[in-house]
Design a binder for these strands. Sequence first.
DNA 1: GATATCTTTTGACCTGGATCAAAAAACGCT
DNA 2: AGCGTTTTTTGATCCAGGTCAAAAGATATC
Lengths: 185, 185
Amino acid sequence: MDLISFMKSYVDLTPEDEIYISQFLKVEQYGKGDIIRQPNTKSKIIHFIEQGYARNFYEKNGKDITYFFLKENTFTLPVDAVYFNDPTKYGLQAEEDLQLTSFMYSDFHRMIERVPGILHLYEIEMAKFIRQLSDKYYLIQFQPALERYNSMLEKYPDILLHVSLGHIASYLGITQETLSRIRTK
Amino acid sequence: MDLISFMKSYVDLTPEDEIYISQFLKVEQYGKGDIIRQPNTKSKIIHFIEQGYARNFYEKNGKDITYFFLKENTFTLPVDAVYFNDPTKYGLQAEEDLQLTSFMYSDFHRMIERVPGILHLYEIEMAKFIRQLSDKYYLIQFQPALERYNSMLEKYPDILLHVSLGHIASYLGITQETLSRIRTK
DNA sequence: GATATCTTTTGACCTGGATCAAAAAACGCT
DNA sequence: AGCGTTTTTTGATCCAGGTCAAAAGATATC
């Protein structure tokens, strides 16, 4: 779904609103494995994923670790950079061929000034993100590896179809080898 | 700091605005250990902590686990209940004598209608929360126990002064015994 | 200020999952 | 189809931190 249609499922937009908003948006295509945003940058760009899966990742002791998976119809932005002007440690990478709409956070606030309802949409999207982050946290705080994997199977079975097992392992806070052993059961 | 003063540090409020907002607010006092919200409820109340420290907690296999610490001048609300009408697993408890201001999420939106700037304040508070949650997540995804504790010492030394070690251990995703052993170094 | 309760520390033991290494399988690419 | 690259599996070893149990220290209560 494109961003304008997504917005229209929450708030009414006049044709003029659409034109106004569109001027700030840039539709982009990426291929599997492409880096959309490098880690440790201060980019203040918001991405809306229209098609395909992506992930946030960071590097720790030379290891690539997945922080979050992003599916279609979700927003992603580097909170550290946008709100606190600090570099984010999280990069953004396409897990498969990807189409997304990008826009500056500052322009986003112009859209909100014109169509205040968008801020409410944004509030709900932030709430969704917090919820997912909380669930994720709950998962790794005290659950053994098997339960982490089962819980993921149950909650996000779609992700398994779009990303490699190595990425899932680090997302779950376990090694690839452990994940492999768990899966043979 | 009381909530009205806190708001005024972000947005301008006329005396009439203050009166309007105040009608929705309830100031409450709690003693150390008091449960402010039980786990598994659908409460849609937002709390603003004016004085003292609190924590979110949940129960897992008969064990009490700390999910988050809350300090003065922060908001806390059960995201699952407020935004998705699901019960939250997280309860809210006073770590020490506490003063807080409570209000309904629905009334909060009335305040925003009257003073739209409050939504921007709220946006920033949500961003702060996401950031803390991300940091927390980073901490436990692959860090060994010692680094978790050191990182906490560095980032939130104040919390150590207000809560018991058992609560800190579960917050860090380790056992009390391990924390104790780490600290003797 | 003695007793009950809660919190923290110490000790002994054990296990889940990490690490290192290498084989096997899957996936491009020309 | 065949060859290089990446991903996944399998095997052997090891250790950080969990578990259980009990002592020692704090705190609160009458």
